[in-house]
Nucleic acid binder design. Structure first.
Lengths: 140, 140
DNA sequence: GTGATTGCAAATCTTTTGCACTAAA
DNA sequence: TTTAGTGCAAAAGATTTGCAATCAC
C-alpha cells in the first residue's frame, strides 16, 4: 500500500523501469497508461498535460516519450516523414493508417500473418517488424 | 530516334508521365533512373546534382521527387520521423532498415509473405502495405 | 549535498510556401 | 504568348540541445 501518494501505479511502473519518478514523468505516465491503447503525438500529450494543469515543457515531453520508449513502456510508430506516434500498446501488433485524418488504429497480430520472413544479413539481428496498412476512403 | 537530345529516355519517361520535361526534371530523372534500385534522400540527390554540374535548387528537388512519386515513378519510404527516402524500385517489395547507418535495403516480395490481411474498415480501401524490417548489429 | 531532471530558448533539420522570374509549348 | 516550372529566401514544423535552476534521493 502506498498511502497518500497520487499515481501509485505510475510510481511503481517508473521505479521498475529504472526511471526516477519525477512529478512530470508521473503525470505523463498517468495520462498515457490509463488502461486504453493510445497513439499519441508529443504535441498532443503536451496539450493534454497543460489542460490537466500539469506544468511541463514540450522538450520534457519529448524526452520522456523517448525514455519511455527506451525502457519498453512505449513503442514508436512512424508513418509519415514528419510524424511520430507513440503507442501504449507494446504487444505484437500492426497498424492501419488513415492518410486523410492522420489517425492510427491497431491491427491485432492474429489478423495479419507474416508467413515468411527473409534472413537478416550476416551479423545482423531482426529487431522489429513494422507493418503499416495505408487506407483511404473508397472514393478518395 | 531522338537525335542530338541528351537523356532521350528520361525525356520520353517524363512525357509519358505527363510531366513537362524541363532541364531540371530531365537531369534528376537521369540521376535517379540509371537502371539500379536506389533509395535517395532529397538532400543527397541535390548534392549529386550539384556535383554533376546541374544547377537546381533544393526546393525543386523536393518538388520533383514528390511529382515523380505522384505519377508513380518513385515510391516514398518512411522509416524514421524526420527522414523520407524515395525508392526507384516501384515493384512490390519491402525493406530492411539499418538503424545504425540509416541504410535501406530491398527485400524482394517473394521473401516476405503476408498470408493474411485484415479487412479494411467499412468505406475504406487498402492503398498500400509498408513493411519495414528493423535490423541492428548482433552485438548492438 | 549530489547527481539526475527540468525548463526555456535557441538551434537544427527537414520540408513547404510565396512570389517574381524563366522557360517550355 | 501563356502557362507551367523554377529559384530563392523565408516560413513552418518537428525535434534536439545547452545550460542554469530545480528536484529526488
Amino acid at each position: 500500500m502506498v498511502p497518500d501518494r497520487p499515481y501509485a501505479n505510475a510510481y511503481d511502473l517508473l521505479r521498475e523501469s529504472g526511471l526516477r519518478p519525477t512529478r512530470q514523468r508521473l503525470a505523463l505516465a498517468k495520462l498515457l497508461f490509463d488502461g486504453s491503447d493510445r497513439h499519441v503525438r508529443a504535441e498532443q500529450l503536451h496539450g493534454e498535460a497543460l489542460t490537466a494543469g500539469i506544468r511541463v515543457s514540450l522538450a520534457t515531453v519529448y524526452n520522456t516519450l523517448h525514455q519511455f520508449t527506451e525502457v519498453g513502456l512505449l513503442r514508436e510508430v512512424v508513418v509519415e516523414s514528419g510524424r511520430a506516434y507513440f503507442d501504449t500498446n507494446i504487444s505484437d501488433h500492426h497498424h492501419f493508417f488513415y492518410e486523410a485524418s492522420g489517425e492510427l488504429r491497431d491491427v491485432p497480430a492474429d489478423q495479419l500473418v507474416l508467413s515468411r520472413l527473409p534472413e537478416p544479413p550476416a551479423g545482423k539481428l531482426l529487431k522489429r517488424v513494422d507493418v503499416i496498412l495505408h487506407v483511404a476512403d473508397s472514393d478518395g
